[in-house]
Design a protein around this nucleic acid. Structure first.
Lengths: 334, 334
DNA sequence: CTGTTAGCGCTTTCAG
DNA sequence: CTGAAAGCGCTAACAG
């Protein structure tokens, strides 16, 4: 594996390395057209490929960003990632994706590795468990943006769904369909993960807004593995809910499994609205009414914010939370 | 953003850069325990983080590999990627994933970029459109492995499903259930994509093995967007198939949509088996019988093969095709 | 318009 | 056990 370097090209084209460098950086103005030809030729013959690592070292810029997602299993995460990648490709920026698996230790490790690799910035779906690390980065003015979650005390640009509104839309639709006993189930609330907390909050607010009682037996936040148990419990009540708001796609799978195992009929026995659009919503029987997030726009926004920050590290554009509006997609499960 | 370098650490610990380097590389034998203490302390105080880019330049090794998938929309691709990432993480190797979108030009571009970035090796789901590029890499002995597809004339380690067997399993099950008129539909065959071709071939072989006639009106390879038209055509035949083998998950979505739109009952009107396990197979109504691929093992194997090659670039372990066995998961759609 | 000269931050002989 | 020095491949002043 003979590596051919700029020096080889320079020698062959009988110019100096810097001229070759100029050529590569398309600063053609400073170059006799004929010199340019010679360089072109040499590059072609030698099959020269620039070494970006060397360039990065010099420029202190790798044209690579890191994305750390809390949990890659959510459709939401993968869609956001795809959108970030698309946006970055347009700017010739590469993306390294890491999955923290909801584990702050893994997250910390990735942050360190990625920074050691000199990525130009980070988009993170924070686990919330590394507040000091987050803050250190902010103080250094290292480019970073959060997605999906905000972290108390950490002041950084963040891209989020208008979660309260999402719940509101669902409740409103349930009510419109005549439901009075409405429940909500989502993943565990112990770590105060933003979307879960906000969606529950929005749910309660919406209930009140519609003059419905708030029955805490109808509201559950549980580990995915315990969702079914929670459901059993809820449906053993003398007056179980007739409608259920499902907090995210992973929980939805559990709910749908439960429904199937217990031969419930949707929406007669139980009306369902899930937050997060899932690929099989349309073909499911019955088609699933969902609240969708504008993942494409959100990913794009996150990427743009980060790229801007990378461009001018200096200018401190004021930090803010960017909220995106959810959309109710009415099908037949409610 | 004050970058602290090894020189700073060295100065503070009153040693030379090389000693610090030794420390970082854990060559403690060559070091007075007390020197070591001082270095540790300096690193801690300064908050020093090594610059991996500089190291990579020197070592000619980035501890990063690239993965180029032909089409990220397949569940298969994302599962393989996850498995590759898991395996690589264990070896402290980072992964950059790129989606060629079934476009050879994009693929070529990514190969060049990734190599310019000095990734240590490449795992690619080849589009099949860059034979010369593939061959150049092989001649250079650049570490590379193919997944999912083989390319004529390109002799490289490849990880694939035993595709013919996959079709065989399906046909066998259809026959067992009493079906005689069995069809197959998959994505376009024009570019000779390995799994499609092999699955069709296996399908025909299996039909013959069961003494069933091969009716070419029952076999279709079409762009995703045209799947539904193909289905219409097939079901307008006087004797339409009673069972359908679906070539992959993307096609399955189309088929299921068609089924829904035309109010067909599965499996009475049409029995279905899909190649590729899909997340909603269980909760679908009826639950879907599928042929699953051992994606976890396949991704792991691909990563291991690549990592081995990277370890000893020299030793030319003989090139071969690694086949993995599909599994029939019987549910209710057939 | 082109060449010279310094590095970027780290690793790695090779002396001492 | 520790330090000096060379250099990985490229960029960026600065002369000329």
């Amino acid at each position: 594996m003979k590596r051919v370097t700029m020096a080889d090209v320079a020698k062959m084209a009988k110019v100096s390395k810097s001229t070759v460098s100029q050529y590569l950086n398309k600063r053609y103005e400073y170059m006799a057209p004929e010199t340019r030809k010679r360089i072109e030729e040499a590059i072609r013959v030698l099959g020269y490929q620039p070494n970006i690592v060397a360039r990065s070292l010099k420029q202190k810029r790798t044209s690579t960003i890191g994305v750390i997602v809390a949990n890659i299993l959510h459709t939401f995460s993968t869609q956001i990632i795809r959108s970030i990648e698309d946006t970055c490709r347009e700017h010739d920026i590469h993306v390294i994706v890491c999955n923290a698996d909801d584990d702050p230790a893994k997250e910390a490790n990735y942050i360190k590795m990625l920074r050691a690799k000199q990525v130009d910035g980070l988009i993170v779906f924070p686990t919330g468990g590394n507040i000091d690390l987050y803050q250190a980065m902010i103080q250094e003015r290292y480019p970073i943006v959060f997605v999906d979650r905000i972290v108390e005390q950490v002041n950084v640009d963040s891209v989020l769904l208008n979660n309260e509104r999402a719940s509101y839309l669902a409740v409103e639709h349930f009510v419109k369909k005549g439901h009075q006993r409405i429940g909500m189930i989502t993943t565990s609330l112990i770590r105060n993960i933003t979307p879960r907390v906000e969606r529950i909050k929005g749910f309660i607010t919406a209930l009140k807004a519609h003059n419905l009682p708030v029955n805490h037996e109808y509201i559950k936040g549980l580990e995915v593995a315990k969702i079914k148990d929670g459901l059993s419990e809820m449906f053993r009540l003398k007056e179980p809910p007739t409608a259920l708001l499902v907090g995210n796609d992973l929980v939805l799978m559990e709910v749908l499994n439960y429904v199937k195992e217990n031969s419930l009929i949707i929406p007669q026995d139980l009306a369902i609205i899930g937050i997060d659009e899932v690929p099989f919503a349309n073909i499911f029987d019955p088609p699933l009414t969902t609240i969708s997030q504008p993942t494409f726009e959100m990913g794009k926004k996150a990427a743009q914010l980060l790229l801007e920050k990378i461009e001018d590290q200096e200018r401190s554009i004021e930090v803010k939370i960017h909220r995106f509006e959810p959309k109710l997609i009415i099908r037949s499960s409610c």
